[in-house]
Design a binder for these strands. Structure first.
Lengths: 140, 140
DNA sequence: GCGCATTACTGGCAAGTGCCAGTATTTTTG
DNA sequence: CAAAAATACTGGCACTTGCCAGTAATGCGC
């Protein structure tokens, strides 16, 4: 009996999320929030659907997840030219928080790569990105 | 700038969880619940702390996650010889549900491995299990 | 045996995740 | 142009995840 691909992924994800969240804790950001700020900085201004796709996240999930960041004053949301959509950008406070968090993120990366090995970590990231990019439409 | 190990893991995890949850949907079980039932069947009777360790899950998280399964009548909980602890086992209904779900789990495994390749999937599982087994205690 | 530290679990909180139903807006169609 | 379809987001629900604080029970030291 082979092992469950999904369970292996979820367990590794829990373990590594704990590491990154613990290292990022002094910033008040979790790793999901840090990642969202990073993507928003890179793509801003961007509306929710393409951002959700970039994050490999459900559209509704993204809508929920931006709430705490918006309440914190890290995001500015404005109505797009298509008035159904909203464009997200970082506020100056958001950029400052991200800049601070990046220092600790580097530390978490170092801890991970020291444990796993830089070569293995790079290969793993490549494989995982390949997996995340797929659709997995099962045959009907 | 290298990519975030944690983000790559979480994105792949979300993507693959969506696949497994979608395939398992007819059973009413999510992949986390399926995995818990599998581990409980393998280790029963077992109390919550060692089960949480086997699942690479926080003790409190496991406590929360068994609730829906217990409400469904899939788990029986009894007080252990150490009366602080609770021993979990599968009920006959839980075993039956797991047996049914296993058929669809095999299908999800097939979809994943057809897409990623059996060899790559096996290597990925090995790496992920190795990652999940580590503690990542960052230096003080 | 009593008191205290330790341990096993529970409850509350906040955030993460995704489904579905509903609303507002745009686009397509007749 | 009006009606219908498609699209972008929001709210509600359930579960997932993990922290912290509290409760109950055990075990240790005296």
């Amino acid at each position: 009996m082979t092992l469950c691909n999904c369970l292996a992924l979820r367990q590794a994800s829990r373990r590594v999320t704990q590491l990154y969240d613990r290292v990022l804790a002094p910033t008040g950001l979790r790793v999901t929030q840090y990642s969202m700020l990073t993507e928003i900085e890179r793509l801003a201004p961007i509306s929710l659907i393409p951002l959700a796709e970039a994050m490999v996240m459900d559209r509704a999930t993204l809508g929920h997840n931006i709430r705490p960041l918006q309440a914190q004053g890290y995001l500015s949301l404005s109505i797009g030219t298509d008035r159904r959509s909203r464009e997200v950008s970082l506020t100056p406070a958001g950029k400052a928080a991200l800049k601070q968090a990046r220092l600790l993120w580097h530390k978490a990366q170092s801890v991970f790569e020291a444990e796993v090995g830089p070569q293995a970590a790079a290969e793993l990231r490549d494989r995982l990105q390949d997996v995340a990019a797929r659709q997995f439409l099962e045959p009907v």
